[in-house]
Amino acid sequence: MGIREKPTRMDQVQSWRADFPVEYLYTTGVAGERFAKTLRERGMLAATRCQRCGVTYLPPRIYCQRCFADLSESWVEVPLQGVIHTYTVVPVRATGEPSQSLEVIAYIRIDGTEGGILGRVAVSPEAVYIGMAVEGVLAPPAERRGAVTDIRYFKPILS
């Protein structure tokens, strides 16, 4: 069986099942460690600022992607507040399996930065809109692990 004579039934073909079992320990790096420590200890977002370009990076980076300056000594902290830049409502989990309920996932521009964070928003799919002001809800201090998952979700800021 091959190029000259092709199979015409599924029971004539064979496959081999295998997986790709690999694990990693990702180095979080200078910026990642500072971000994690600031979130865990003070419940704030650590960002880096390039004075020359007037840009604040979140997630923080120790370099400016515009002028290539070293930003490893140029930190600011901002609260978990921002505006929904875009959003989607998903009926499935990240694994592709159906979810119990609809989830609102948004990309949130964080105030005082040019960056932002991807997160879930505790709001009904009918009520969410682009431009909605939201704030992050953190895990209680004792339960924080120093990871982005310490931000449990975002919720609308009631004016």
Binding site: Y24, Y26, T28, G32, F35, P59, H85, T86, Y87, T88, V90, V92, R93, A94, G96, I105, A106, Y107, I117, L118, G119, R120, I130, A147, V148, T149
Partner: peptide, 29 residues
């Protein structure tokens, strides 16, 4: 999922099509 940043993005747990959906929403807006 392995294509997303492992520290800031992957742990949030977002399906792949959701990233396209976020783009599409903003594009229509």
């Amino acid at each position: 999922a392995m294509a997303l940043d492992p520290i800031y993005e992957r742990p949030v747990g977002v399906p792949s099509h959701a990233i396209a959906a976020l783009e599409m929403r903003r594009y229509l807006h």
